[in-house]
């Protein structure tokens, strides 16, 4: 009895998480559905900022998914849809923002840090080699 209840609860919980944020959006074309899924994964939910649009249950996220769906059915491309979102909510909605003045530092920072690290390693190794060479000469 208890086990049965536990299993039932578990099954229910799993069902809920599997259909999270489900909308009654119908796609005739599987390719369209895939595009929709990719798009909503790439766009950030503004209310719960660490979630993407696909996963969020916030009302705004539902509204925005509906909007994206309608735009797709209208025949609009991914870029148009992303521009629509950025025009209203800024670069922040994109998990991979376009390279622009605002986001240049964000994109270049990994490279800059790698460069700084490489320079540091270069000098450390060179200094050590010089020191070792000097010690060898002395000794």
């Amino acid at each position: 009895m208890t086990l049965k209840n536990t299993l039932l609860a578990l099954a229910l919980a799993l069902t809920v998480s599997a259909v999270h944020a489900a909308d009654p959006l119908v796609f005739d074309d599987p390719a369209m559905e895939e595009r929709y899924n990719d798009l909503t994964l790439e766009l950030r939910c503004l209310v719960c900022q660490n979630q993407n649009l696909a996963d969020s249950d916030a009302e705004l996220a539902q509204d925005l998914r509906r909007e994206i769906y309608d735009m797709m059915m209208d025949g609009q491309g991914d870029d148009q849809i992303k521009t629509f979102m950025v025009d209203r909510y800024g670069d922040f909605v994109l998990y991979r923002p376009a390279m622009s003045g605002n986001t240049l530092l964000l994109w270049l920072m990994p490279g800059i840090l790698l460069g700084v690290g490489a320079i540091a390693v270069f000098f450390t190794v060179r200094n050590r080699n010089q020191r070792l060479a000097a010690e060898r000469q002395q000794g």
Partner: peptide, 13 residues
């Protein structure tokens, strides 16, 4: 009521 205009204004809360 639908929140459609609010989207145009970039309202998120």
């Amino acid at each position: 009521i639908t929140g459609r205009t609010a989207i145009d204004f970039g309202v998120y809360a």
